[in-house]
Design a protein around this nucleic acid. Structure first.
Lengths: 222, 222
DNA sequence: GCAAAAGTGTTCCAGATACACCCATGT
DNA sequence: ACATGGGTGTATCTGGAACACTTTTGC
């Protein structure tokens, strides 16, 4: 089967920056390439947009194919279209980023035969194509959104302590925050609910557990 | 000449939201469509990305073809790719927006035979395709950027008064600002320079004229 | 009782807001 | 002299930043 056009058409892909928080570190998912170019390099998961498929649907499909995850936060990041970013043919990539709570990962062990792994954003291997640029922009967007939205809550499991939430902020920002100021600001946002439950975790005072009031929605603040 | 691929490829275009300020109103450029679909409707200027052309270069080319303008602020907005946004074939559009100072318009009277015109953003005709969505997002982005960047300066001519700059802010925000607070904040940004010149404009005190310290650059503030 | 994380208030400072009058010019 | 837009300062409010000790548990 062949598809013929009067003028040359580029290929269009979506590439996914899939973030999670593990071990108090911001991490993202990479797949090892099995073919040329950049054979054996690590790359962002992604693939071609089907001819009748919405861009966001394509991104969601890639996400599910690689991780089995559905129903998480997804946002279009930027479109990368330098003429020679892929040496094979002209490929324009619409990049998305997704935020996955740590208790949602490993729902599916792995995708097909491909080797996939989580990497700390602070310690990435060298990436195929222009994917290092895409990651840098995604991390920058995420960091910026921490300051004017409730996006960090998208990383939280059903129940969580305020210390855990603060660690999420600190992992993304790469900096420490003052505990009292953090709690004051968070509570003023009125976006989390005290569940009344506590979690006994070790030889210290138990933590009160909170839940997100509107899971799945990201509000702008200030 | 024909171009054949093993899998179907979408067409990729750039669409341009070209803003200016005229008569204390935020306006944008539209072109009247000469063919189906949406024959005779107004639409954003745009066109197909050439196979070896960078996306931003394509946007700049469209801008120059429609207006003769070069060297103005340009930023990628969003990529629109709903499967049926163009009834003819699958078209994915990478939208950009540009800001043109009013003294730069009409450098070239018009493009080819096409009918082009400036419209007030507050009073647009109905637009072809999903262009109303694109315009809404561009206006929203521009409004947001007023509050955390020096983007408004991209609308200013070589020399301008503070009242003129304030009118630019008011046109975009659609709201009045306090004169004293506006001036205090602007001067604190340290991004405009007192030229020492004044402009005599009518039967009232002349206005001091300022110029942008770093034309072409947009800085984040706060 | 001791180690370890959870929880809690006040003071201070900077930036935003509200607000009213004089100035320089043309007619 | 008067009409018109240009230009200026102060008081107040609000949100962010800095900062240290008590509580509850497991061992």
């Amino acid at each position: 089967m062949a598809y013929t056009y009067q003028y040359p058409h580029p290929a269009v892909t979506t590439d996914m920056v899939i973030f999670t928080i593990r071990g108090q570190q911001l991490e993202l998912l990479l797949v090892r390439r099995g073919g040329e170019p950049f054979m054996n390099s690590w790359a962002l998961p992604g693939g071609f947009v089907e001819i009748d498929e919405d861009l966001e649907a394509c991104a969601l499909r890639e996400l599910e194919e690689e991780t089995g995850i559905t129903g998480v936060y997804l946002e279009q990041l930027y479109t990368f279209g330098a003429p020679n970013r892929d040496p094979r043919e002209r490929v324009i990539s619409v990049a998305y980023y997704a935020l996955v709570p740590p208790d949602r990962i490993n729902i599916r062990a792995a995708s097909d035969a491909k080797e996939v792994a989580w990497f700390q954003v602070r310690n990435l291997p060298s990436l195929a194509f222009d994917h290092a640029n895409i990651v840098a922009m995604a991390h920058q967007r995420l960091t910026a959104k921490l300051n004017y939205s409730t996006i960090a809550l998208q990383f939280m499991p059903e129940n969580f302590s305020l210390s855990e939430l603060q660690q999420v902020y600190e992992s993304i920002l790469g900096d420490r925050l003052d505990k009292r100021n953090f709690r004051k600001r968070l509570m003023a946002l009125d976006c989390i609910r005290d569940t009344g439950m506590v979690r006994r975790n070790g030889n210290h005072r138990p933590a009160r557990l909170y839940s997100v009031k509107s899971p799945g929605t990201v509000e702008f603040i200030k």
